[in-house]
Design a binder for these strands. Structure first.
Lengths: 158, 158
DNA sequence: AGCAAATACTACGAAATCGTACTAAAAGGA
DNA sequence: TCCTTTTAGTACGATTTCGTAGTATTTGCT
């Protein structure tokens, strides 16, 4: 039980910094940048709002991240034809390459997980993790703060 | 399996921002500040280095955080008698109060977890989570980056 | 059609985090 | 003892993140 606390405390700053393998990719881009690229790889082109929501970041942070990625040539941003307000974010060749590299590392790590766990354990782990996330997400007892700040809470669906 | 990825992506920025209950405390202090206070509550007085290591943050970040907490009156820093280089960080009354408040919230959330999970599930969950953390931590394939940057990797012991 | 409200995003300044360079004290020789 | 090395922490500037205010486009209402 105390162990759960400890694990929680460790992730205060630098979430998932205990994962060793991914470090060298972070020489080129930040973790948020990488996450953004990965989302684009998984889900295809996205609007800024969709990205922000997937990342659990405020839209204004997303603007900074996207600007950085665009400057470095990893993404391109086009104005949507249907709605001139929305910006479609797309991976460039270079961005796709980097995202795939990171995806590969994640697969490797999941592979290690599959090695260490039995298939039943892995199922159980996923199930319990999602259940726990749901529980922590709770039943909205903090409505009043929501109104003020746009993205303080990150929703987890299935 | 994809669900694990999704959960991972969601925590890119703002780790544990999906937890609703803690939000109002963060009006007063940042999450890192809160974590620092909680570590002091759990472990008693700590040096700057110990704190940084517990948080998984570089020492220089810890300096900023501690300065902030001291300015706000939540901690006090005294020079150690044995070794004049080390600074002992202590909770003030006010700091202890805040830490307890946050601890209470965490207990509540763990209570919700215990409600939702059977005791066996909870045991299994803890066990698997720690095992997974260990696995991700891996077998040090990235030594060369370690030498350069002091705190890029956070170690998880038992 | 005309206008208020909502939506999608950016701008900008403030705060937080971090890497590197530095200072001071302690430890370890010779 | 003197001097080199190590250890503990801070200083400072750069980067990242974020809240708020603003702009432009679309939607909804009459």
């Amino acid at each position: 039980m105390q162990q759960l606390y400890d694990l929680f405390l460790k992730t205060g700053l630098r979430p998932f910094a205990f994962m060793t393998d991914t470090l060298h990719l972070e020489q080129k881009v930040t973790r948020s940048d990488l996450t953004t690229l990965l989302i684009l790889l998984f889900r295809g082109d996205q609007t800024m709002s969709e990205l922000a929501s997937e990342m659990g970041a405020p839209l204004s942070s997303m603007t900074s991240i996207a600007a950085r990625l665009e400057r470095k040539g990893f993404i391109a941003r086009a104005i949507s034809a249907q709605d001139q307000r929305v910006r479609l974010v797309t991976l460039t060749q270079e961005g796709r390459r980097l995202a795939k590299e990171w995806e590969h590392l994640m697969h490797e790590m999941l592979g290690r997980l599959e090695e260490a766990f039995t298939p039943e354990e892995l199922d159980e782990f996923t199930r319990l993790l999602l259940k726990a996330a749901k529980v922590f997400q709770g039943e909205e007892p903090a409505r009043q703060y929501e109104a003020k700040n746009q993205a303080r809470k990150i929703d987890i669906e299935d």
